[in-house]
Nucleic acid binder design. Structure first.
Length: 281
DNA sequence: CCGCGGGCCTGAGAGC
DNA sequence: TGCTCTCAGGCCCGCG
């Protein structure tokens, strides 16, 4: 479920309990998500103070006093919750004072503050890794990422340059983390709707031959930022898809004022795309 | 190098 | 109620 806004919301919640705290104990009930954890996963975390909790694209990075970085990804179904109190092992399983653990609670971080951060991930598409300081800069997952859309350096010019050589559609190009980092299926749909651009349009048409942005690139860069900022700000104000204007709204009237289009669902690169065929060109 | 299709997992929801 | 089927917002890999 999580795209950039969701991961950012998780970061803001977790940093309150993790930053400045020491990780006292790490319990891995399952040490294999998308890939197996390093064998010394717990040992390299226990005793470490978390200096900062950062986000890059959809990754969370906890900077440790040792210089190592705890790298975490929520995949499709990952989530964290904070439980007050330490765990107790009973018959080989862990219990809190009042609540039992869920079958998909895979990792528990007990902090010096007394809080326990629990990572839950039913589909296990998530990721946990500990990266050494000298390997962080060359980490494959991180180095291939494009610009942060909410960063100063992201604008119509950088976006146009990234799209210029793309032979594919806008939908596929924006879903590519090398072009812009942090968008997923939902916010790609939302940003394209806001920018009035068709997901089927060729990505390269937003750039001139010399790489300069066409007006569509201006609109798109702005739409991406607006959609993400709004989603972060509104995180806890709405439920489920009420926040989305086109995603999962197949068959409904286009929410754009004055537009009488009906939201359509198509499949691109194996994933659903929702858009208005009338106002998105 | 690029773009596409398939695969990894489990759970929710629809339809019968 | 219960079964089966489809689909899901991530990412990586291998193929052409």
């Amino acid at each position: 479920m999580p795209e950039l806004p969701e991961v950012e919301a998780v970061r803001r919640q977790l940093r309150r309990v993790m930053e400045g705290a020491r990780i006292e104990r790490v319990e891995t009930r399952r040490a294999d998500l998308r890939s197996p954890f390093p064998r010394d996963f717990a040992a390299r975390l226990e005793g470490q103070t978390v200096n900062a909790l950062r986000r890059r694209a959809k990754y969370l990075l906890a900077d440790l006093a040792s210089g190592d970085t705890l790298l975490m990804h929520l995949g499709m179904s990952g989530s964290f919750r904070v439980v007050r109190g330490r765990t107790d092992a009973v018959h080989g399983d862990f219990y809190f004072k009042r609540s039992r653990l869920d079958a998909h609670d895979h990792v528990l971080f007990t902090l010096s503050s007394g809080a326990t951060v629990v990572f839950n991930d039913p589909r296990r598409f998530g990721q946990m890794d500990v990266i050494r300081a000298d390997e962080l800069a060359s980490n494959r997952a991180l180095t291939s990422l494009g610009p942060e859309p909410l960063d100063r350096r992201f604008n119509a010019t950088t976006l146009a340059r990234a799209l210029k050589s793309k032979k594919t559609t806008l939908k596929a190009a924006l879903s590519d983390q090398r072009v812009v980092a942090g968008l997923g299926n939902i916010y790609v749909c939302e940003a394209l709707h806001r920018a009035r651009l068709s997901p089927k349009r060729r990505a390269s048409t937003l750039a001139k031959a010399n790489g300069e942005p066409r007006p569509g690139a201006e609109a798109l860069a702005e739409a991406i930022q607006d959609v993400l900022k709004e989603a972060i700000a509104n995180k806890h104000r709405y439920r489920s898809n009420d926040r989305f204007r086109v995603y999962d709204h197949e068959g409904e009237r286009c929410p754009r004022r004055g537009c009488s289009g009906i939201i359509k669902r198509i499949v691109q690169a194996g994933r659903s795309t929702f858009f208005c065929p009338v106002c998105q060109r």
